[in-house]
Structure formats: structure tokens, C-alpha cells
Amino acid sequence: MGYIATLALMLAALWLTLSGYFHNQLLLSLGGLSVVITVALALRMRILDDEAAPYYRAPRLLAYSVWLMVEIIKANLIVAKTILRPNMVLTPRMVRIKTLPASGFGRALFANSITLTPGTVSVDLDDDEVIVHAILKEMTNKNDFAEMARRCAWAAGEKADGEEEVSA
């Protein structure tokens, strides 16, 4: 039920943002109809689950994205400085990272966060490791990745000791 409400609310907000009609009754009812049809289709396709409408994760994800934004800005400045230097010195590295969040959602978040941070790109994903390419060797610090993995696990709603939370 929560998933349906979340999806319907998000779709309605999207429709209002894109159209901007708040007073035309006919258009509003047509918009409502399209929301209902989309939700019905999503239910019929059985794709309305934890991953499609993770509403209970929203507060933690927001908190995490603020932290990630700060990290992205820091990394951007480092990479920009490196590129702008006329005598560029690069120390590219490929590293395997073994400490991952336990849940699938957490891992996807972790890999995406690595890629979003300039200077590191997740090249390959496996069950138990992520291969990361970094442009500078300073960016392959194990503790930094462990920190990010810990925060991703927290944002994905896992318990602190690494055990996956059972969601109903």
C-alpha cells in the first residue's frame, strides 16, 4: 500500500511539474487518469516493490546525498587541479575493493557513488568485489572506500554490524 501511494504521489508531482496546469479541470482529471493507469500497469507488471518506490529510505538517502555532494566537490577540485597543471603527473591505479555493503541496493549505491566521484570509476562489479580505476594513487586509500561503504550500508538501511535488515 505504501508503494502504491508513493508511486501515485511521485507521478502526480511529476505531471504537475511538467504541465504546470493547476486550474483546468479537464486537464487535471486527465492527468489523474494517467496516474491511475500507470499505477495499474506497474501493479500488473509486478515491478512495484522495494526498489521501485523505496519511500522509507528517503530520509537516509537525502542525508547520504548531502555527504556525497561534499565529497564530489572535494574530488572535483583535486582532479581539476591535476588536469590544469602544465606538467601533469598522473598515477593511475586499478584496485579491487573487497569491503562492500551487504544488500544489493547498498552495493548499487556504493558503485554509483564511486563513479559519481571524479577521479574514481567503478569498472567492474562482482559478487564480492568492485574493480575501481583511479587517476591518482592518493585516491585509492582503503579507509576512504571503507568509510563510503559504511555510509552506503547505512543509507540502504542495513544494520551497523553488516547484517542485512529483514524488510517486510
Binding site: I72, N76, L90, P92, T115, P118, G119, V121, I135
Partner: peptide, 12 residues
Amino acid sequence: YTRIHAAGITDT
């Protein structure tokens, strides 16, 4: 592989 990082600046 290093060019990806530069493209990352423009993307973020």
C-alpha cells in the same frame, strides 16, 4: 580510462 575522470568533472 583517465579521460573518464575528466568527463566526470563536466558531469558532476
